[in-house]
């Protein structure tokens, strides 16, 4: 008449389903469809997607591209790291290696950039604090993400993928200047900013 899960049932167990059970299965199914639909919908309507421009890159080539980027837009140094202020709309290159993020990047609020992430050695994790934006940084792959900083301030880039014993030392910086202040800075270029060379 009834049995537990440790007793063998009869050969044919394909039987009709009780009402409550059937109702729950359909509710659960409908919810699963909602879960599935949300992701494509966010691709169409939402502002945050991990798609990006993705391709393979040789770590040495990426390093050279970062060096070129630093040379082109460097405006100073911070704690020995080059500070770079690329113009709105440009490609920004951030290099991860044991145990540093190079360079420090200065962006403008409301402007769009393409942020390229890659690693020279092992896996690293791009974690933008305090916003909690996280991306995986994989050696041999360039992850180019379109970003629009929506608020000014000083943000830190933590590494959140274990990358060796110095993992916890790996902190970088992204500065976002307010939209109006940035406009003033353009009027008086490089005033008061050290032009000492970077590390390379």
């Amino acid at each position: 008449m009834y049995r537990t899960g440790i007793e063998p049932p009869e050969r044919v167990w394909w039987k009709k389903v009780e009402r409550h059970e059937k109702v729950w299965v359909w509710i659960a199914f409908a919810w699963c469809m909602v879960l599935f639909a949300m992701m494509p919908v966010w691709h169409l309507r939402g502002g945050q997607n991990p798609s990006g421009i993705r391709h393979r890159v040789d770590p040495a080539d990426f390093q050279a591209r970062v060096a070129e980027f630093v040379q082109e837009y460097q405006v100073g140094t911070d704690n020995g790291l080059p500070v770079v202020a690329p113009p709105p709309g440009s490609h920004v290159y951030l290099q991860a290696s044991q145990f540093a993020w190079i360079p420090v990047v200065r962006l403008r609020q409301g402007a769009e950039y393409t942020l390229h992430l890659s690693s020279l050695d092992v896996n690293h994790g791009f974690a933008l604090y305090p916003l909690n934006i996280n991306f995986q940084v994989v050696p041999g792959y360039d992850y180019g993400l379109r970003i629009v900083p929506n608020e000014p301030g000083e943000f830190h880039v933590m590494c959140n993928e274990f990358c060796g014993i110095g993992h916890h030392l790996m902190v970088g910086k992204i500065i976002v200047e307010p939209a109006d202040a940035a406009a003033e800075a353009v009027d008086a270029p490089a005033a008061g900013v050290s032009t000492a060379g970077g590390d390379r």
Binding site: N79, Y129, N132, N160, H167, H168, L169, V171
Partner: peptide
Amino acid sequence: TFGVPRRHWDIGFTQALFQP
């Protein structure tokens, strides 16, 4: 939810270049 990383020895970052 505050962005505290997993697998991390010291979220005080006492010896790091910058201290979030």
